[in-house]
Write a protein that binds this DNA or RNA. Structure first.
Lengths: 301, 301
DNA sequence: AGGGGATATAAACGATGTCTATGATAAATT
DNA sequence: AATTTATCATAGACATCGTTTATATCCCCT
């Protein structure tokens, strides 16, 4: 009933392949009697003579030949499997599936992805963009390995690692130059045309809530679906955009945008890398997260 | 360098298939810790986590899934191999390849072949006819499992089992009724038209030699290539045929042929079943020979 | 004939895999 | 929320099974 010890097939395969029990023994780092014994076990279990023994080695019998034709296939698959696994281990192969927002991909993850891909060109990178809840469900159903979102996240099933800290702020272009050196109250800010990210963004919800706590209503004149557009519209003078300061570092430096300061500090938020708690990560995902952590720690000093 | 113990793949396959280490343990007649340990070995050897462990069993990881896709194939081939071998053992499958002369096939082997085929319809029967030397080389090159010929055979590489004894004789039809109750000398016989089997037949060579020893030349008027024709020609009165008595038993009994008696006894000869010495027989061949031996022993009393 | 190379056999040994017992954790049940 | 009942993990003792060493046997080749 129970199947034969698979290990015997390995011995059989090598013996048949080399036509010699002694030879097979060498390949297997065993002694010849051990191989002889293994073959005998196979033969006894099957009730079939597999080899013709003669003075210069062994030859497959009719039945042995048939067995070999099957075992050869099996052996090849196992060899392939082991190669593939070795590839995974050395990351010459594999997949890295990340969920996040487009802006985080572009402004936060991109450099990591570039160097990762450079080091491990064999690993395929799959990016899925979506809202935080969408990303969380992707994680839970196993279609992505990790999610990159803005904190805080409170979900007991998730393991969250903190990344760099980001600071949101309001920015404007030259049309609002009058505001360059002023410090506004919330109340005053709401007098200006505001450009916000689309309604379901967490950052937007947070800032709206913050204003409401102070009795202000932050009502956008324009709603956009991409951070790039928020920047572009602000530069063109269409309003004051609410963006992440780190994502507009270039524009702030070159002066095409300036920060509209408020008399209250907007709370900073951190980037979080989410994975499923107690679910092992793929080799590639593990390596990727490690790289991010080391970099971020370095940049945090 | 060295490959992983194949046995671990069996454990892995069943664990993945059932999604439970405990379940796999039951299938393998092992305990759960044993399976747990086996999987751990695989994982450590490969440097890859294969399963996600949770409270209701195990699930394959990304990498585990890839491994499984290979191992599944291998497992299936091994299963097929074991089935096939079981078929060989039970002779639901296999081949029986016999070399011999057409006359022995028809008059000697046919009943055995019939009952064998009846018992083991799954075993394919291949008959190859040829001269004794041809059959011997077929045997030595492995294209047949056994040869059925007239003895004696002297070849140290061959294992020869004796079958039933056959007696050659001269037979004639009604046209030679004058000879029915006479006993001829060799000299006298040669006065009649003789019909012999073709030149390269061993039986013919033997009888020609026998006559020559007595100073007679046995010169055929007709040469034929088939025993059936020898019988037919004799019945039609075209001459006196040299045939095996057992092969014309029916004709002798019904009187359409009668034996032409000589004053010297023609030496009997035995049927021999040849196999290669020290070369294992296929299951089917072994079984077939056994059947013949038992039958022949019975009929020898 | 005899040497060399192959496999077979036997018995002692030892590594490896297996088991028992126990612990930890999470889901299902109450 | 507490309890029960699955699951898998771990540790250490044990025993099996495979391995080795030593020797025999056989066949081929010179």
């Amino acid at each position: 009933m129970s199947m034969i010890n698979f290990e015997l097939y390995k011995v059989f395969y090598l013996a048949a392949k080399s036509g010699s029990l002694s030879q097979a023994a060498k390949s297997l780092f065993l002694t010849q009697p051990s191989v002889s014994h293994a073959i005998k076990q196979l033969e006894e279990h099957m009730g079939v003579t597999l080899f013709t023994r003669n003075a210069r080695g062994v030859t497959l019998t009719q039945e042995g030949n048939v067995l070999f034709s099957y075992i050869e296939q099996a052996y090849n698959f196992i060899s392939l499997a082991e190669e593939k696994m070795a590839e995974f281990k050395s990351m010459d192969s594999g997949e890295l599936r990340i969920g996040g927002s487009d802006s985080l991909f572009k402004h936060y993850l991109l450099p990591y992805l570039e160097t990762f891909h450079e080091h491990y060109p064999g690993v395929g990178i799959h990016l899925t963009h979506g809202t935080t809840p969408e990303i969380i469900s992707s994680l839970k159903e196993g279609s992505i390995d990790l999610g990159v979102v803005r904190l805080p996240i409170i979900d007991p099933q998730l393991e969250v690692k903190e990344g760099i800290q980001l600071q949101d702020c309001f920015v404007a272009g030259s049309r609002f130059n009058e505001l360059r050196d002023r410090v506004l109250t919330m109340e005053q800010l709401t007098q200006y045309p505001i450009i916000l990210f689309s309604r379901n963004s967490r950052a937007r919800m947070a800032v709206t809530e913050l204003f409401r706590e102070q009795g202000c209503e932050l009502k956008p004149e324009i709603e956009l679906g991409s951070v790039d557009l928020l920047i572009e519209f602000a530069r063109k003078g269409l309003g004051i955009s609410f963006v992440t300061r780190e994502f507009v570092a270039k524009e702030l430096e070159e002066g095409s945008l300036f920060e509209v300061k408020l008399d209250v500090a907007l709370p900073p938020s951190k980037v979080g890398i989410m994975t499923l708690r107690h679910i092992p990560l793929s080799i590639a995902a593990k390596a990727f997260i490690e790289r991010i952590e080391q970099q971020d720690i370095g940049s945090r000093t």
